[in-house]
Design a binder for these strands. Structure first.
Lengths: 222, 222
DNA sequence: AGTATTCGAAGTGTCGACAATATAGTGATA
DNA sequence: TATCACTATATTGTCGACACTTCGAATACT
């Protein structure tokens, strides 16, 4: 099992996914204006479709809009990053707690198998871990919480913004091995059905992650 | 200072606010279908405006939509209520922690003045407390967190759903006096800048609130 | 009788045109 | 020269019409 792929069915779906990708990856720069007419010619759809797509981007907190003025891609800032991680800490901490309570035995085994496969890759020196692996681990725990609101807010809402920060501020860095151990411990707490510990470890994991990124930012732009 | 009133500027704004109100208050029943053509005649606007409004209702998790099929008002269920309160516990707990860190001295004083005025009203036996008072207290703490994501998710997103549950499942009940004491303690922890305690007390407050409602539901429909 | 197929109506998705609003640039006035 | 009013233009908000999909009902077939 992997990340469930969202299947576009309507034209607005396709345009929304494309726009989201272009924004997250920086093809459309952070802070830039989104002209409806311009986009409608660029993506070869009507303005109604563009407006629908922009509406959904607003749900993800990827763009902001003012009436009679227009939409802009959100601006990235160190403060914004901190705020984002604070929300993640709260929500994913709760997700880990609920996962410890609600995950099936099968799900728990799959989670640990995932970490085993990551361990092999980390050992052979593949840097691939951070991107796909980290996302996949967190993603499974969020789904394991079995809480629809939590899943919606995190997966549909905040996660793309997290990726946007990662991509555009160039987070690939280390923290692979230590983060891996933290993942192991979280998974173990979930396997032991220790809700309290699972939440605490997940919160620390995200807090460390935040501090790590903050330090990197400080070194890049003083 | 009171709840900042959202000022409608465009037609879609007005329609969105109206629709949201009608859904929260049950004028449009939970689980019912939203026909675009029907609504467009009822509210005397074009379908484009209705679609815009429905888009925003989806952001609030008040409406769900399937492509080529249509939109439905969300269904209320005991499980949904539990999930909602779990998310509130996580987010408002974090909000209280951040409020203890970030609120200005003036804001702290205002918060305690608010509780004083509530105390007078509770003493004279006004039941008004639960609805407006409770909302106002939580609202101020959320704003005091000074975290834009937190504010957006809670105020624009989950809060109307909470109100919808309250209104439609008829939560007016007691829990006024005990909840009031809990509010007092939370405010005190914030005034002391005790982040840890503020978060813990807020989480317990919401947890108690959830248990209280669950018990009521169990008695109503076994 | 039961199942598969086709057809039709109702509703959503998409489009291009028009109306209303904001913004920049021009010119007038003190 | 600085400020204000006004106009021109570009962009967003709104509308009605058309295209496509879904779902149910009627029909045909085994």
């Amino acid at each position: 099992m992997s990340l469930a792929v969202e299947q576009p069915v309507t034209n607005a779906d396709r345009t929304f996914f494309q726009l989201r990708k272009d924004i997250v990856e920086g093809l459309i720069p952070a802070g830039s204006k989104l002209s409806e007419t311009e986009l409608s010619t660029k993506y070869a759809v009507s303005r109604a479709v563009i407006r629908e797509a922009i509406s959904r981007l607003m749900s993800c907190h990827l763009v902001e809009r003012r009436a009679n003025v227009g939409a802009r891609v959100v601006a990235l800032s160190p403060e914004g990053l901190v705020e984002l991680y604070q929300v993640r800490e709260a929500l994913e901490g709760m997700a880990a707690r609920l996962a410890a309570k609600n995950m099936s035995e099968q799900q728990v085994q799959d989670l640990q198998a995932l970490l085993d496969s990551h361990f092999d890759k980390v050992k052979t020196g593949e840097t691939y871990y951070q991107e796909a692996g980290d996302v996949d681990f967190h993603y499974r725990i969020i789904l394991g919480s079995n809480n629809q609101h939590l899943i919606a807010v995190l997966v549909d809402g905040l996660y793309h913004l997290v990726r946007m920060y990662r991509v555009q501020l160039g987070m690939a860095g280390p923290r692979v091995t230590t983060a891996f151990d933290e993942h192991r411990n979280i998974a173990q707490a979930i396997a032991n059905r220790d809700e309290e510990l699972a939440e605490m470890l997940m919160r620390r994991h995200i807090l460390y992650s935040k501090n790590n990124i903050e330090n990197k930012l400080r070194h890049l732009s003083p």
